Computed example of a mutant assay.
Amino acid sequence: MLRSVVREWLSWVYPFVCELCGRGGLDGCHVCPDCRGSFVPVEPPFCAVCGEPAEGSFIPSGLCRRCAVALPSFEEARAVYVNTGSLRDLLLAFKYGGAVHLAGSFAQMMAEAVRGNPHWFGGKKRLIVPVPMHRGKQARRGYNQAQELAVLLGEELGWPYAGVLKRLPDTLPQASLSREQRLRHARKIYAADEKRMKRSPVRGRDVLLVDDVFTTGATADSCARLLLRSGAASVCVLTLARTHHAWRG
């Protein structure tokens, strides 16, 4: 009830006009169809596990080179768009610029992708878990963008939600690390929140880990590993966007 009241209040503060072109009269969304049409979708062929778009021909297994060498802890990761252009600008505003009102629009896009691809994630209804943010950082920012997406995605799909992971104190910016360094580092900065695990156990549950952007997969792999250790039956990953080297810059 409280969340619906807050969303109604936000709709008055941020009327439904396109965040990119200013077009008004939108129905519960902050991106008009024309501007959304400029977003680059992640389309097949892509890696059957991590979702990395193919560069040339895939190996017979359908895996990218990284997953063919070492599979991540999660079963399947999917993203709706490539993190480039105007979408990247919106995500930066959402993540760092206080544009939390964009969460509803982004969650709608993610829910549409799930409904439009019923074969994703084994076709199972899943427990939605957000990638956590350190509580000090969240207090300064005022919100965790992954949590905002996860809660609203759960409402869109009618799937349960549980915030059962936590991030430990850390001062090393991951953006400065290589993929291999991120993998090692990420395993040190995330942990299961034991109190919340007792209230919302994941044991035996199929989990969908949610974040805004999939970059190297280090965060997703670390969080999936923790969820599996806590008894999750399986872990899949959904993000609005993913970084793809062919589109960087």
Rank of each mutant, 00 (worst) to 15 (best):
R141H: 00
L209N: 01
V235W: 03
S11Q: 13
V17S: 14
G51H: 01
R23K: 14
L157K: 10
G158K: 13
A70Q: 15
A70W: 04
K166V: 13
Y96L: 09
L90Q: 01
D221Y: 09
T215H: 05
A224K: 04
L172N: 00
K125T: 15
S222Q: 09
C29R: 11
Q147Y: 13
R167C: 10
K125A: 14
F39E: 06
L2R: 15
L10K: 04
M110D: 10
R7S: 07
V237A: 05
R203F: 01
C67F: 15
V235I: 04
G62E: 05
R88W: 03
V213R: 03
S57T: 12
V114E: 06
P160M: 09
T239S: 11
V207F: 10
A218V: 08
A220D: 01
A186D: 12
S178A: 04
E55G: 12
V13W: 10
A192K: 05
Y14W: 11
Q147H: 15
L2I: 15
A191S: 14
H30Y: 13
Q138E: 13
E8I: 10
G204A: 13
E8S: 14
E180Y: 00
G249M: 09
A241M: 10
R141A: 03
V202E: 04
R199M: 03
E194N: 04
L10S: 10
V114R: 01
C67R: 14
A93Q: 11
Y96A: 06
A232Q: 14
G122T: 06
Y81N: 08
M1Y: 13
V114L: 07
L2V: 15
A218C: 08
K137R: 15
T216C: 10
E75V: 03
L102E: 00
R7D: 01
L10I: 07
H30T: 06
C32W: 03
H101G: 00
A139N: 06
L92Y: 05
D211F: 02
C64I: 13
A146N: 06
R229F: 07
A77V: 06
